[in-house]
Amino acid sequence: MCLAIPGKIVEISSDNQDSALVDVVGVRRKIDLGLLQDDKPTLGDWVLIHVGFAMSKISEQDAADQMNTLRMLGEIDGAMQEIQGYGLEDVN
């Protein structure tokens, strides 16, 4: 829940601009862009994700650094479990 997970926006829904597909080290899940209304990310942008919502735009380098930090903190598994759980996939 407290993890900030970096992801790359690979698709933005054509019928819902607040819905985007992100790629997090190969895992693709839908996230919500509704909290970045003032600074909408576009295709190829990197974002930090908290509980399924993009909370800030970051650079590709910062995304790599954040992934590395998660790895060093031993939180990679938790982060991937969270990403895989978005959309109720792999849950329950």
């Binding site: 509980v51 969270e82 759980g85």
Partner: peptide, 13 residues
């Protein structure tokens, strides 16, 4: 009891 990873998934439920 269900685990969700996002509030939007609770709404989806």
């Amino acid at each position: 009891v269900r685990i969700v990873y996002s509030p939007s998934d609770a709404l989806k439920l």
